[in-house]
Design a protein around this nucleic acid. Structure first.
Length: 267
DNA sequence: GTTGAGCGTT
């Protein structure tokens, strides 16, 4: 049953009515349509007088247990960072692990299947003119960039990683990684529902697993899991940068209930 | 046997 929720940008302002969906949830786009740059809600608890955020699951705002009620919901302020994120521009992606023989034409052909390509480069040694095994690609549409970033690619070779170049990593926005470090694994473990797996050869008892979903990946981080009698350790793929972020996300995702669905089974 | 491997001549 659809209803109207009282929302405002400032608690002292007169609230305006925000329509909910038929199932009682609210879409962030509905919020954004009324309050530029905002996409979340919180309300002041009549009991504790504290502001409480509204639960956001897979991009949808869910009513509190007691329903939306007659409370006034305050939209989240649009911080400069969020405002910047709304306009997603494409950037060059570095493509690593290219075979020596791969040419710019090969790269363009390959990436054109995902969307319009603005530019490709294969970096070559100035003296010898031969490929250095990496290059860059730039797409017209940010959508295409996201698509290409999401999955493992094979360009005349078993694996070609692509990611934002070091020069383009923004320190205020560490991408929530879909990749997890798996320690103490055994060689015969297999991984389900994943985008990529990296196992060092020769085998060294750890692996990197990239999941299709960053929420799943993050919910696994930091867990010690028993799988078929073997204790497996999972952690963030690059522990040095984002331990705080990781804790935050762990609290939000509330443990590893999805684990059995997604992770490891023994052969 | 608990953190791979690579980063842009103009």
């Amino acid at each position: 049953m659809s209803e109207c929720i009282r929302g405002t940008k400032d608690e002292n302002d007169k609230p305006i009515e925000i329509p909910s969906e038929d199932d009682g949830t609210v879409l962030p786009s509905t919020i954004t349509a009324q309050f530029l740059g905002a996409c979340g809600l919180s309300s002041r608890s009549p009991v504790s007088q504290c502001m409480r955020g509204i639960w956001l699951v897979e991009g949808i705002l869910h009513a509190p247990e007691a329903g939306w009620g007659n409370l006034v919901y305050v939209t989240d302020a649009s911080s400069p960072v969020k405002a910047k994120r709304a306009v997603q521009k494409t950037s060059d992606l570095i493509v690593l692990g290219l075979p020596w023989k791969t040419t710019e034409q090969d790269l363009r052909e390959y990436f054109s299947t995902f969307g319009e390509v603005l530019m490709v480069q294969v970096k070559t040694d100035l003296k010898t003119g031969h490929s250095e095994g990496f290059g860059f690609v730039r797409f017209t549409e940010y959508e295409t960039q996201v698509k290409v970033m999401s999955w493992r690619h094979m360009i005349d070779a078993p694996r070609c990683d692509r990611k934002l170049p070091n020069s383009k990593q923004s320190p205020d926005e560490p991408l929530r990684s879909r990749k997890v470090f798996v320690g103490r694994c055994t060689e015969d473990m297999t991984y389900g529902e994943v985008a990529d797996v990296f196992i060092p050869r020769p085998f060294r008892a750890f692996a990197f697993v990239t999941f299709a979903d960053d929420q799943v990946a993050q919910s696994l981080c930091g867990e010690d899991l028993i799988i078929k009698g073997i204790s497996v350790h999972t952690a963030n793929d690059e522990p040095k940068h984002n331990s705080n972020r990781q804790k935050e996300v762990e609290e939000l995702t509330g443990g590893n209930s999805d684990f059995s669905k997604y992770m490891v089974s023994m052969l």
